[in-house]
Amino acid sequence: MIKASPLGFIFGNYFLSGERVLTQGLSLGLEVGTRFPSPGRTYTSQYYSYRSGGLLWPSVSNLSYFTITPELRWYTNGGPGHGFYISLYYRYLDIKQRNIQANLLIPQQGKAPLDGVVTYQEYLRTHALGLGIGAQWLLGRKKNIVLDWYIIGVSNGRGSGWVEGSYKFYDKQPHKSEIDASTLENLLLDQTESDSEGVKTTLDKQAQTFRITGLRTTVISPRLGLSIGFRF
């Protein structure tokens, strides 16, 4: 069986899956999904990182991802590829969030603070195991049309990520000597919401770029949808 999600095309999420019946009531499937960034719109807020709601609608214009999900299905009625099923799956997810911006304000002793902006990208790779339920029907005179309703699934796993970007000041000066490196690093960690144990910051004051690595997070994500396809 080959299936695709028609609702995903409306929102820019593209999913294609295949399923092979192994024995009566048992099948093996593989789903591949992707999303491309939407051009022409930039959402500028540091509060929509993947660590604080980046998968929600306000920031999806700059969100892209790739996911691959192998799964094992058990059809409770013993049917060959139809009926209610329980699914055990593994999911690999690679996310990129572009063009996130945050204000940068650096205090100076006896002087006006330096005002600027940080522009950065977030990257996240996750590995998770999940369990779900759904129902599948074989339709048509030859029972070769497949309707698959994945009712709900939940996966739990671990993710690793990094942040990279640049900063600039509104007076268009680099201020290499006036700014203490540790102060700037702490502000960048705070503004990108990366201030956690074990992270490492690499700073280039000449190019005004930075990279933050060693981010770790726990990922709990739902899975649901409707797909249609053909049985061969």
Rank of each mutant, 00 (worst) to 15 (best):
S177A: 12
Q101L: 08
L104T: 02
I106P: 06
G198F: 10
L188K: 05
K143G: 04
G140L: 04
D180H: 09
L93M: 08
E122P: 11
S177R: 05
G159Q: 01
G134H: 08
L104N: 06
Q109T: 09
L104D: 01
G161F: 05
P113E: 02
I133G: 14
G161A: 10
G110H: 11
Q101P: 02
Y150D: 13
G153A: 07
N186Y: 03
G110S: 09
Q121W: 12
E122I: 03
W149S: 03
D195K: 13
P174S: 09
S196M: 15
G130D: 03
L114N: 13
Y167D: 00
V163D: 03
Y150H: 15
G157E: 04
I100D: 00
I95G: 03
N99T: 02
H175W: 08
D115H: 11
G110A: 08
K200A: 15
A135L: 04
G161W: 03
P113G: 05
G165N: 14
P107N: 08
I95A: 11
D195R: 12
G157T: 04
L189A: 08
K143A: 14
L184V: 13
K143W: 01
L131R: 01
F169G: 02
E197T: 14
T126S: 15
I151D: 02
Q121L: 05
E197H: 14
Y167S: 06
I152A: 15
L104A: 00
I100M: 13
A112I: 06
L129V: 08
F169K: 05
I106F: 10
V118Q: 03
G198Q: 01
L88V: 15
L88Q: 14
D190K: 11
Q108I: 06
G110N: 10
I179R: 15
I106D: 01
G198M: 04
P174M: 03
D171G: 10
L105H: 10
Y150V: 07
D190P: 00
S194A: 15
L187H: 04
N144Q: 05
K96P: 02
T201H: 08
I106T: 10
L147V: 13
Q191W: 01
T126N: 06
A112H: 03
Y120H: 09
L187E: 06
L139T: 12
R141I: 10
D171P: 07
T119Y: 13
R158N: 09
H175G: 12
Q121E: 12
K96Q: 09
L187Y: 07
V118W: 09
G153Y: 06
G130T: 06
E122D: 03
N156W: 14
V199T: 15
G140D: 00
D171R: 12
L114S: 10
V163W: 08
N99L: 07
E197P: 12
Q108H: 09
L189H: 04
R91S: 15
Y167R: 01
Y92I: 00
W137G: 07
D115S: 15
S155F: 06
I145G: 07
D190Y: 06
K168Y: 15
Y92E: 00
S166H: 05
Y123G: 00
A181C: 02
F169H: 03
V117R: 15
H127L: 07
Y90D: 01
K111P: 00
